[in-house]
Computed example of a mutant assay.
Amino acid sequence: MKKIISLLAIILIFVSCKEEVVKKPDRLIEKEVMLNIMYDLSLLEAIKYQNPASLDTFKINPKKYIYKKYKIDSLQFAKSNTYYASNYEEYTAIVVELEDRLTKKKEEIATIIKAEEKKNKKKKKTIEKPVSPTTKLIDSLEINQRKRL
């Protein structure tokens, strides 16, 4: 996630230094869809950072997955990202909303983990290690990717 935010900040700096305004691309990705794309990219980057072999194990190519899921291509994404980054207030709003969404998801997962731990303590049995939220997310990504193929 830090990599994505750093990349977005660098793009923002380069775009904001230009005197000319970035023209609206022909196939601009809608703001809400762009937020969803950035959210998914953040999750995939986090998975890749936490467990690098996990995406390879499930044969998930993050870029191809995102492009297929949102029916976009790399050029369309790059142009849309540059366009949004050229408007500081709008891009800041997108990034803030993205951070809020990631924070809420993190809190949800922490709540689920705590509930599972309490449940396991009550059983007082030796059971298998609970499935991590990352594994659940990877499984759902794999299922979605197989459906699309």
Rank of each mutant, 00 (worst) to 15 (best):
Q145L: 10
R146H: 11
M34S: 09
S42K: 07
I5N: 05
Y65K: 06
A85P: 05
M38F: 11
K2P: 02
K63Q: 15
K59H: 13
E107Y: 07
V15F: 01
E30D: 11
D40S: 04
K3Y: 06
L12F: 03
L41P: 00
R27H: 14
E116G: 02
N144P: 00
K71W: 10
Y70R: 11
N87R: 14
D139G: 06
T126C: 05
D40P: 00
L98A: 08
E108V: 07
K136S: 04
Q145T: 08
K124Y: 05
V131C: 03
Y88N: 03
K59N: 13
K136M: 02
Q145E: 13
I109C: 12
K129Q: 14
N120H: 07
K123N: 07
I47Q: 04
E20L: 02
N144W: 05
L55T: 12
N81R: 04
I60G: 09
K104L: 12
L55K: 12
R148C: 00
V95N: 13
L102I: 14
T111F: 05
K69C: 01
A93Y: 07
A110S: 15
V33D: 08
K129T: 14
S6C: 00
D40K: 06
E108M: 12
F14H: 15
A53R: 14
S54A: 15
P25C: 04
D26M: 14
I127R: 13
K24N: 13
E19W: 03
M38G: 03
K79L: 13
I143V: 08
A53F: 11
S54Q: 14
A53I: 10
K123R: 13
C17E: 07
C17F: 01
K23G: 12
K123L: 13
I72M: 06
K31A: 07
K122T: 03
M34C: 06
K24I: 14
D139K: 15
K69P: 00
E128A: 08
I4W: 03
E128I: 02
L102G: 09
I127N: 15
I60L: 11
I66A: 04
I29S: 00
N51Y: 07
K123G: 06
P62G: 05
K106R: 10
A110E: 15
D139S: 14
T82L: 13
K59P: 03
K124G: 13
K79M: 12
Q76Y: 01
K129M: 12
P130S: 02
K3S: 07
E45H: 10
L44Y: 05
E116M: 10
D139I: 09
K23Y: 07
I37L: 09
E20P: 00
